[in-house]
Simulated assay, not measured.
Amino acid sequence: MGMAAAEIEAMIVAAIPGAAVEITDLAGDGDHYAAKVVAAAFVGMPRVRQHQMVYNALGGRMGGVLHALQLTTAAPAQE
């Protein structure tokens, strides 16, 4: 079944406003993606909590509709 990359991106941005999201379909099957999420909301937050925020944004679809997500998160670079 799978999910569209645009749907994943929209769900993340809706839950983490202002996030810059890049989604890459790793296998062409709609089930295996890589996501890079950069958000000001992540400032001062441990990486585990950043990942939890992204998984929560997907509303329980991980492991079901969405089989695999290679996740990279970061706060914006400070100048």
Rank of each mutant, 00 (worst) to 15 (best):
M1W: 09
M1F: 11
M3F: 07
A4T: 11
E7T: 15
E9C: 08
E9W: 03
A10T: 06
A10R: 14
M11W: 08
M11N: 04
I12D: 01
I12H: 01
I12Q: 03
V13C: 13
A14W: 03
A14K: 14
A15Q: 04
A15W: 02
I16L: 15
I16S: 01
P17R: 09
G18E: 12
G18D: 12
A19D: 05
A20P: 00
A20V: 14
V21K: 06
E22Y: 00
E22M: 09
E22R: 15
I23W: 04
I23G: 03
T24I: 14
L26F: 05
L26N: 05
L26M: 15
L26T: 08
L26Q: 06
A27R: 14
A27L: 13
A27S: 15
G28V: 12
G28I: 12
G28Q: 12
D29T: 14
D29Y: 10
D29G: 08
G30R: 11
G30M: 11
D31H: 14
H32R: 13
H32N: 15
A35E: 06
A35I: 11
A35W: 07
V37R: 09
V38K: 08
A39P: 08
A40Q: 14
A40I: 08
F42C: 08
F42L: 09
F42I: 10
V43R: 14
G44V: 06
P46M: 08
P46K: 09
R47K: 11
R47P: 01
R47D: 07
R47M: 12
V48A: 09
V48Y: 02
H51V: 02
H51A: 11
V54F: 01
V54Y: 00
V54E: 00
A57F: 04
L58P: 01
G59C: 06
G59F: 02
G60I: 09
R61D: 00
M62T: 07
M62F: 06
G63C: 04
G63R: 07
G63V: 09
G64A: 13
V65R: 15
L66V: 10
A68C: 08
L71W: 03
T73Y: 02
T73I: 07
T73G: 03
A75N: 00
A75R: 03
P76E: 06
P76Y: 08
A77I: 12
E79I: 04
E79S: 11
